[in-house]
């Protein structure tokens, strides 16, 4: 891992250097009053190669990737998955459990059964 850090630094310096060279080339053209056609080949190659080196070394340094799971594990439980709001029905014990003003409906007289 330490090697890759050095490679990364070198790559970054090389990338910066190629950018600096490109800027220098443009100033040189302006001073010598020539038309700009394209960058010299060596600068382009240096930029591309050092970019590839930087990408590779970053990938190698930070390589403890996490697996992508097909489902969001841990987040979804049966409770939330099976909770279907469009089909809620309110005819359940909730009104007796959570409503402080709940009064029990009159039960039919059970004495007759005895």
């Amino acid at each position: 891992m330490g090697v890759y850090k050095i490679v990364l630094t070198l790559g970054l310096i090389s990338l910066l250097h190629s950018g600096y060279s490109a800027a220098q080339y443009r100033t040189f053209l302006r001073i010598s009053e020539q038309e700009f056609e394209s960058l010299p080949l060596d600068i382009s190659i240096q930029a591309i190669v050092s970019f590839a080196v930087v990408v590779y070394s970053i990938l190698s340094i930070k390589s403890d990737w996490k697996l992508i799971h097909a489902t969001e594990i841990g987040k979804s439980s049966w409770d939330t998955f099976a909770n279907i709001q469009s089909f809620y029905s309110f005819n359940h014990r909730g009104k007796a459990l959570f409503n402080p003003d709940y009064t029990q409906p009159n039960l039919p007289n059970m004495d007759l059964l005895n």
Partner: peptide
Amino acid sequence: FIASLDCGR
């Protein structure tokens, strides 16, 4: 609103 219906409020 939906939660309070669920609680009978």
